[in-house]
């Protein structure tokens, strides 16, 4: 009995310790972000890495999600004669949920893993210490550009995912099921509100900030050689994905009241 309580206590303690350290890193990152000089060159490099390089995967995921969504909704809704609502369903789910969340999960797997692995390798090969000896703050040089790029690029990618997903839905509904093009667009625009898109993008920005912060944290505090880098990378993807899915519920409950 005591063993179980001790185990639960240990888990809670470890979790709070990790959260505390992430928040601490967050505050240092914000501070270093505000103080000049600014890392413009590095930030653009990271925006390219996180944004542009993730684009192909985001496009493919979004178009097929839109397609399968309209496929399922069309055949399902047909049972009670509501096929004309497919446009609405696809538009609402893409902008509110699937655009931001799927994009975030892709970026966590791609860019988040890369961040953790790169920073982790730099830690175990003493490159982060070397930065310090060359009078360069490693948080400013390494983490701030990734944090800024992640926070800015996620909403951009999510916007593209929204549009692509809706286009995918159109393709299947109008192209395959020969539903009316006019009805699809009318149903899309009639019920879609600016706040749906906007709140979705707020979520995306939050996910972007979380992914880069968590992945940088996992990489930055890596210990124990190649094995440590592997563990850090896995940890970054797992913790980022969990954070995305869990915070998505609470953010949605708050934003879409």
């Amino acid at each position: 009995m005591f063993k179980i309580i001790a185990l639960i206590g240990k888990v809670i303690l470890n979790f709070s310790e990790e959260m505390g350290r992430i928040l601490l890193l967050f505050s240092v990152t914000l501070k270093q972000m505000i103080i000049p000089p600014y890392e413009v060159r590095n930030t653009f490099k990271q925006m390219l890495e996180i944004g542009i390089r993730s684009l192909p995967v985001v496009l493919i995921t979004a178009i097929f999600t839109g397609m399968v969504f309209s496929l399922q909704t069309f055949t399902g809704f047909k049972r009670f004669g509501a096929e004309t609502l497919v446009g609405t369903v696809v538009a609402l789910s893409m902008t509110r949920e699937l655009g931001p969340v799927l994009t975030a999960l892709i970026v966590a797997g791609r860019a988040g893993a890369a961040m953790a692995a790169e920073l982790g390798t730099m830690r175990v090969t003493e490159q982060i210490d070397a930065l310090e000896t060359l009078a360069t703050n490693p948080v400013k040089y390494l983490i701030v550009p990734r944090f800024v790029a992640g926070t800015l690029m996620l909403p951009a990618l999510a916007t593209i995912a929204d549009i692509t997903g809706i286009a995918g839905g159109y393709l299947v509904t109008v192209g395959l099921f020969e539903s009316s093009s006019i009805v699809y667009w009318k149903r899309t625009w009639d019920y879609l509100e600016t706040s749906d898109i906007f709140n979705g993008l707020i979520k995306a920005a939050f996910f972007g900030a979380s992914i880069s912060l968590i992945s940088c944290y996992k990489g930055f505090y890596t210990r124990g050689g190649a094995e440590g880098v592997g563990k850090g990378t896995t940890g970054a993807v797992v913790l980022s994905s969990m954070t995305i899915l869990i915070s998505d519920y609470f953010l949605s409950a708050w934003l879409f009241r």
């Binding site: 730099m122 090969t125 003493e126 490159q127 210490d129 070397a130």
Partner: peptide
């Protein structure tokens, strides 16, 4: 540094 720690 021991392993030179060059920025790769």
């Amino acid at each position: 540094f021991q392993m030179a720690a060059l920025f790769d």
